[in-house]
Amino acid sequence: MTRSRFPVSLLCYLILVGGCVLAVFPYLLTLLTAFKGPGQLFATAPWEPGLPPSTAAFERLFASGFGGYLLSTVLVTAGITAGQLVFAVLAGYAFARLSFPGRDALFWVYLSTLMVPAVVTMIPLYLMMQKLGLVDTWAGLMLPTILGTPYAIFLLRQFFRTIPADLEDAARIDGAGRIRTLFSIVLPLSKPILVTVTTLAVVANWNSFLWPLIITSSEDKRLLSVGIALFKGEIGVDYNAVMAGSLIALAPLLVLFVFFQRFVVRSVAVTGLK
């Protein structure tokens, strides 16, 4: 029986190893290319490290104003994430606990917007920002997503519904209002889903490319992803510097996921998602 299962197990492991190599190789390529010197990029195979390692690509990158892109991205990501978290918590709690006419219908209509590709609403959003005079402004960059996203509200609503209503009833008997109950009872019990929503918001806004590319044109409002895509050397695309920028952009997200992955898995399991 064991011998008959061995070929199947071996095949499964080979497929898993192959998938792992395909998934990890782009990150390895980014790391190796970022530390190659100008003459080492085409003189070595992609999977060969440059010897000795060189930081010239990082020096050229920051000399071109990359530090400003990084700072702008941090500030915009922090601002949008904070706004999404606040408004998504309020909306998720309202949909989970408050009773008002058309609550469920409104929730499912709002949730159905997840089926609409973002590129479909890009032009209408741009025209709205243009009419409001918000093109190439920080407000125009942040406004479309700062008020929350359907997915974040859905996750929070599902999690809040798992918290026993008796706890909130007991708080109201003691004289606590809705806001006090939310901040003193519900949110302390919702740390896993709050971490998950925060993590997803940071990743989405940190990697945002198309909307910042369309709505902004000034150098001082250029974000990380746009700056990397538009980075050029003296005679064309500087691949070493592009990979160095990609490595810097990638590192915080990997650290974020490593530290908070257990909260993400736990919250998704509790909300019933697969």
Rank of each mutant, 00 (worst) to 15 (best):
G236W: 01
G18R: 00
A165M: 15
A63P: 00
M115Y: 09
F35T: 08
D220H: 11
G68L: 04
L167H: 05
G227V: 00
V116Q: 10
L253K: 14
R178K: 11
M122R: 03
Y69L: 12
L141S: 08
F6L: 13
M1R: 11
G175N: 01
A57S: 15
R60A: 09
S217P: 01
V76S: 04
S99A: 15
G177R: 03
R172M: 11
V76W: 08
Y13Q: 09
G83S: 06
Y239F: 09
R178F: 02
A176W: 05
V197A: 11
L132R: 12
L16H: 00
T73W: 09
I228K: 04
L28T: 08
N207Y: 00
A96M: 09
L141M: 08
R222Y: 01
I185T: 00
L210Y: 14
V8R: 07
A229N: 12
A139Y: 14
V255C: 13
S190N: 05
L16Y: 01
L29R: 14
I214L: 02
Y126T: 12
L132S: 06
T73A: 05
G50S: 03
A171Q: 05
I248Y: 12
V203A: 13
Y27K: 07
A229L: 11
V21Y: 09
W206A: 06
I215C: 13
F107A: 03
V120T: 13
L194G: 14
R157D: 14
F231G: 01
L14E: 04
L61E: 07
P150D: 06
P124I: 04
L247G: 10
A118T: 09
L230N: 06
F25Q: 08
S184H: 08
M122A: 13
T33N: 07
F25M: 13
L98W: 06
L22R: 02
P46F: 07
Y13T: 06
S225E: 05
F209Y: 15
A269S: 11
L223G: 02
R5S: 08
F100C: 13
V116P: 06
G37N: 08
I215H: 04
N207P: 02
P26H: 03
F58M: 04
D136S: 09
S208T: 14
S184K: 10
F42K: 02
